[in-house]
Simulated assay, not measured.
Amino acid sequence: MSAISIYHYLIVAAILFSTGLAVAITKRHFVGILLGIELMLNAVNLNLVAFSRYDSDRLSGQLFALFVMVVAAAEVTVALAIVLRVYGHFKTVDPDKLDELKR
């Protein structure tokens, strides 16, 4: 049985990022789009931690991953607040039905 190399981490992260991108593009409501963005951010975190693991002299990858998690938490908080305000005003969370925001 062989050891897990960095290529395995990169392949899993690429699959995770591709899945997140597909979800963010194809979903028709804001919550699904947010879930796709979170999957993409988790793929980036996986890459950062994998690179940090194979460069044991530096911990910068893990610190960047922690920073990405903090930014993602703030992004979700702000985005969900916006979604709640949009739902309160338009009574829908379907992005295609929000034509007043295009003006």
Rank of each mutant, 00 (worst) to 15 (best):
S2H: 00
S5G: 10
I6V: 07
Y7A: 06
H8A: 05
H8K: 06
H8W: 04
Y9T: 01
I11H: 02
I11N: 04
V12Y: 02
A14E: 11
I15Y: 07
L16E: 05
S18D: 07
G20D: 00
L21P: 00
A22R: 12
A24E: 05
I25E: 09
T26C: 12
T26G: 13
K27R: 15
R28I: 11
R28P: 09
H29D: 11
F30W: 00
G36F: 01
I37V: 11
I37C: 04
I37G: 01
L39N: 05
L39C: 11
L41F: 06
L41M: 09
N42P: 06
A43Q: 02
A43C: 10
N45C: 14
L48K: 03
V49F: 07
F51I: 08
S52M: 12
R53F: 09
R53V: 08
Y54A: 03
D55A: 14
S56A: 13
D57G: 12
R58L: 14
S60H: 12
S60Q: 14
S60E: 15
G61D: 07
Q62C: 12
L63I: 15
A65K: 03
F67L: 14
V68M: 12
V71W: 10
A73D: 10
E75C: 13
E75Q: 13
V78S: 12
A79D: 03
V83T: 09
L84Y: 05
L84R: 10
R85I: 10
G88T: 03
H89I: 05
T92M: 01
V93Q: 02
V93R: 00
V93A: 05
D94Q: 08
D94W: 00
P95Y: 10
D96Q: 12
K97F: 04
K97T: 07
L98T: 04
E100G: 10
